[in-house]
């Protein structure tokens, strides 16, 4: 296991990109459960870690329902790619629409420290 940071560096409900020995991993903190998934969407080679980020909007824009790019679903432990919305299971890395699978990585918390297994 390799240390990738401390808990406060991984905001809840969001993805954080880490680079471990040249491997880019999107780490999602879902209500304290941590998941690691390859940060490269197989569709367009764009990063998954931005799923759930607030949309860039003008200050006074009213975007009530769709105010993030992509989605993070803590209950189902899945994400939607922020770019074209393919869905990935964070446990298995599987996208059920195309049967593609991206690599997943075990992430563990020990005290305040977060580790990933490569």
């Amino acid at each position: 296991m390799q240390k990738i940071g401390t808990i406060d560096e991984f905001p809840e409900g969001r993805g954080t990109k880490v680079d471990v020995d040249g491997i880019e991993i999107a780490v999602f903190n879902l209500d304290g459960d941590f998941y690691g998934i390859s940060n490269v969407c197989p569709h367009r080679r764009l990063p998954l870690h931005r799923a759930g980020e607030p949309k860039r909007l003008p200050e006074d824009d009213d975007a009530e329902d769709f105010d993030t790019i992509g989605e993070v679903d803590a209950e189902e432990a899945c994400i939607r790619c922020p770019w074209h919305r393919l869905e990935f299971d964070l446990e298995s890395g599987v996208n059920h629409q195309t049967d593609q699978r991206v690599s997943t990585f075990d992430v563990e918390v020990d005290g305040d420290e977060v580790y990933v297994e490569i």
């Binding site: 949309k55 860039r56 909007l57 003008p58 975007a63 790019i69 922020p82 919305r85």
Partner: peptide
């Protein structure tokens, strides 16, 4: 065809002023 904003031109957001567009360019 897929879950996107009611205004489908918003999937990644919106920028209309030079300052906002400058940030998009960085992104």
């Amino acid at each position: 065809a897929k879950e996107v904003d009611e205004r489908a031109d918003h999937i990644l957001g919106r920028a209309i002023t030079a300052d906002e567009l400058d940030d998009v360019a960085d992104e």
